[in-house]
Design a protein around this nucleic acid. Structure first.
Ligand SMILES: [Mn+2]
Ligand SMILES: [Mn+2]
Ligand SMILES: [Zn+2]
Ligand SMILES: [Zn+2]
Lengths: 141, 141
DNA sequence: TAGTATATAAGAATAATTCTAACTTGAGAA
DNA sequence: TTCTCAAGTTAGAATTATTCTTATATACTA
């Protein structure tokens, strides 16, 4: 039973283990490309033709509430799902819009707990620019 | 003529100096609270009852294209206008949703130009948590 | 001051997300 | 295993931010 751990996750957060939820979680496990809800929907629709966008949103919302996933806002009007809750940075390509994970050792130590009396819960660092592939394409012109 | 420099800005980027555009730029000059397009609209409506949201969006889009302002995406579905193009960080309060500027000296030196062959254009760092005011309110309970 | 390219306003269109309500189902109880 | 029902799903409507369309208005140049 390859879904055992997924079902365990759902049990832990007291959500019924429906085929739709299992499919969403399985998909997120295999897919670390920061997909959008719409992309998840379009892909799962092949397996579950009747799946509803509302179910995608509902499930993602529940997983987010439980801290199992996060949401990234790098572009206007588009949210990307982050399945890797280990602290890390992102590089966003302004040309192809791809999001790359940037792992840095620094997260081992220098996370401050406060700044100016503000209580810090999390930190995000985002690099914007052009990925190597887009840089070479540009060079061809 | 207090609007002289605003008109100069518009001339430089070859946009007609309409009262609406002047009002938007003057508003942004005085208001460094990262307002949303809707907030700008609601406030300018008092002075220009017939102003259109489309004009706000058009003007902001033009100013952004010229690098005069930037746009921040910290919350789902909400864009905030950044009028201060000097590099700096942000603290976003998860409770009151206010955005605070965080100025750090580090921007004087350590901005890398590349990471893993990616060409970096800009960097953003965001702190999420609870501002001092919300922390004290919470303490009252 | 007139001619014209550009800008504005109002509302329609679009797109992401959320809501609603009727139908369905997973999972515990018997 | 079957029954029961709280919880979940779906389709489509509603909402909200943003963009588009187009008729009208206006800033700027000569
Ligand atoms: Mn990531
Ligand atoms: Mn700022
Ligand atoms: Zn790219
Ligand atoms: Zn606060």
């Amino acid at each position: 039973m390859k879904y055992n751990d997924t079902i365990k996750i759902l049990k832990e957060i007291k959500l019924k283990a429906t085929p739709q939820r299992i499919a969403i979680i399985e998909f997120l496990k295999e897919n670390r490309t920061h997909p959008t809800p719409r992309q998840i929907y379009d892909l799962l629709k092949k397996e579950y033709p009747s799946i509803s966008l509302a179910t995608i949103y509902n499930t993602l919302s529940a997983l987010k509430d439980e801290g199992i996933i996060e949401e990234l806002y790098l572009e206007k009007d588009i949210s990307h799902i982050e399945c890797n809750t280990t602290p890390h940075d992102h590089f966003f390509c302004l040309s192809c819009k791809k999001i790359f994970d940037i792992m840095e050792d620094k997260y081992k130590d220098d996370i401050p707990h406060t700044i100016k009396d503000f209580k810090i819960i999390s930190i995000r660092k985002e690099y914007f620019g052009y990925c190597d592939e887009c840089v070479s394409k540009e060079g061809e012109n």
